[in-house]
Design a protein around this nucleic acid. Sequence first.
RNA 1: GCCCCCGUGGCGGAAUUGGUAGACGCGCUCGACUCAAAAUCGAGUUCCGCAAGGAGUGCCGGUUCGACUCCGGCCGGGGGCACCA
Length: 851
Amino acid sequence: MAARFNPLEADAHWQKVWEERGTFHASDSSARPRSYVLEMFPYPSGRIHMGHVRNYTMGDVLARYRRMKGFEVLHPMGWDAFGMPAENAAMEKKVHPGDWTWSNIDTMRAQLKRLGFALDWSREFATCDPAYYGHEQALFLDLFEAELVYRKQSEVNWDPVDMTVLANEQVIDGRGWRSGALVERRKLSQWFLKITDFAEELLDGLDTLDQWPDKVRLMQENWIGKSQGLRFRFDLESPIDGFAGFEVFTTRPDTIFGARFAALSPDHPIAAALAEHDPALAAFIAECKQGGTTAAELETAEKKGFDTGLRVRHPLDAAITLPLYVANFVLMDYGTGAIMGVPAHDQRDLDFARKYGLTVTRVVAPTPEEAAEPIGDEAYSGPGRLVNSEFLDGLSAEDAIREVIARAEGEGWGEGTIVWRLRDWGVSRQRYWGTPIPIIHCEACGAVPVPRDQLPVVLPEDISFDIPGNPLDRHPSWANVDCPKCGSPARRETDTLDTFVDSSWYFIRFASQPADAPFDRAQAERWLPVNQYIGGVEHAILHLLYARFWTRALRRIGRLDIEEPFKGLFTQGMVTHETYRAPDGRWLSPDEVERRDGKLVVAATGEPAETGRTEKMSKSKRNTVDPEPIVDQYGADAVRWFMLSDSPPERDLEWSEAGIQGSWRFVQRVWRLAIEEAERGPSSWLGTSGDNSGDDKPLTRKLHQTISAVGTNIESLAFNKAVANLYELATAVEKAPPSPARSEAVETMVRLVAPMAPHIAEQAWSALGKEGLVSDAQWPEADAALLVDDEVTIAIQVNGKLRDTLNAPKGASREDLEALALASDNVARSLGGKAPKKVIVVPDRLVNLVA
RNA sequence: GCCCCCGUGGCGGAAUUGGUAGACGCGCUCGACUCAAAAUCGAGUUCCGCAAGGAGUGCCGGUUCGACUCCGGCCGGGGGCACCA
């Protein structure tokens, strides 16, 4: 038998065995309890990277563990296969986006298989397959019929480089999330999904997601952005251009007597109307639109306003009128696009008032003494009681809010309302490589759904990418169809769906994939919700919010009775690596540098190289490490083990050569233990001593403590701790003399290692002469009686400082422990012969003597 | 600016409800085996000190018999949102 474990042979062998036996096929009809373990499916960019390996290894450990615990586990894999990179490749390399994508999928599937993931490959699909996106089109039409889809002319974020529209979420600091180009504003007819209809339930639902990271829930909460306040009407002193007044929204109706001006967004209809006969205002509005939208520019942007010369009436006192401005800091797409300005209690309003010489009147005072205190450079937004506010004087801010809302509603000039930050989801993309929106535009009938029997609307193959923009628009015939309603010539929608739509329901399709429907409801409901979802934090808002919305939308239209798609969520950290730079500043890849005499040099030239920060592996910094050669060298198990070791899974993991070697050593250690055990034979310990009871109580205890700890740690995804537990056990076993207890420990350890390093585990299992696969074996059961030691170490403190430790039987009485502590020489010395004033005894833990 | 998270040896990190800080891994040192090396095995490794002992979980203070853990105030790092009324 080989002294060393040879992963190249063993990996391939066991992967073949699992595949042939269908070991990881999930049965839809199983009577076992179910568990759905899912990792965010990859975009087929070309090759697997370390981030994938880490993500999928974590999910795999959980899936294998749950399987051994007796669950019927669904652990599928597929491809998020639509998207821009395929079109970029098409433009650069003159290949068809589909050919490029499918070939990437083949490469990456093979790479994933080499890592030995316990995936049910029979459920694999790619979202770019008409067999998938056709059903997505059907679901889109379901939502359309339920009026959860609408089309509107809207100002959109136009990415001039990618020549496409971006969702608000895809604009970061005013730039396109992919291209980094400055985003322009354009008006286009776009399809929207009514996610705002679900704002309240998406927010409330977060409370039920107790197995999600708080961070993610908080991010979603902020994103949804619920604000309660008052929406009310300002009447113009005298109507103009047919406008009698306009509505504003405020979260601080209590401060209404502090209002010193009103302001409209530059995009407000009244502003536009006024601008038609006021060139100065028109110029001001144009100037506002010019301003950049980057974070830096916004931060330094001055508050600017244009006095319209008009005045509005205060709703609570007709004698008061306020000047009306058009102001650059008022956003059209939040609230009503108009505000009341309360300089004393809002910083922006204060800046504005100071600039334009408006009065500032305090209406909330934290204490009565401060009622007359003038406002300086800082607006006061804290709590307090009302002053200078007529009938509100003396009320707390909270009560005043209620009072003003009540009065507004009673008198009919306003109402208490909720405003959301969340906007509807614009899903139109002017791209080829996406799901065609199944709509036909007819001059007479308007937007008509494609009849169900004509689905899927399949992308044409004969397209060209010679010029930027959407090839579907330019295709000579694809868009030309007859209207399904009236039969007259009509035109297909040439926009495709945002790829986030594809990923909003793929987890349902994994659970159930009939040919003639998106999913079978009963079957999907048996698997869903996903018990554990694992992926990167970068999807904390967009993907996860959209998927939650989609699931709730399906529920509302009666297709699937699931509220939340992902019961447990885990966001794993990134894989990082040092960066290296040559003297001329260009980035160097890890294999372009080497250490000579402790100094880092450029391998080819010998010139000194500089070590940069440790950062996420990225092509631009050239600090990536391709997993495949590593698997070639060390085998799948060592790579998997390393991905799980050391760093807590939610934190970043730094790739290092030393780390992978350490993992390799452990794999070999497991093998050595198993092979020694196998060669010695099951009865080798017989006759080695006169006493053949073969007990090794300490080892057996260690074993059972490890069984318990590894299980707990895998369940809470604390893989780094599970790894540490197994190292400890391995050391304990190595040090133990042969005995039945040791044989049992080795066999059990193989099972404990199996979810994390499955190939060596199978090989060892087979070497030990075990029946069947370790993948099919039961997870060992920890004996509760063996989890606690019958002797414990007691810490002896004097004044809280450790002075001695001593052993005592578990459960020793307080009196005994105290007596033991006082008998210690160290204690006597520390006490200096005096009796302690007070003695604190924590049974089985410590004695603290207070002098 | 607002919100959130995190600061522990040379490094990654452990430490149920406050109860022996530094498990486990990496690295390093010494030793065994070897002609030698690799691999493997053994011992050691928070800091100061020969030792006894002392100090120590970003900094300052507090609560407590006892604080990495709880409270207050700073400093540093990371993330999210960002003119949201």
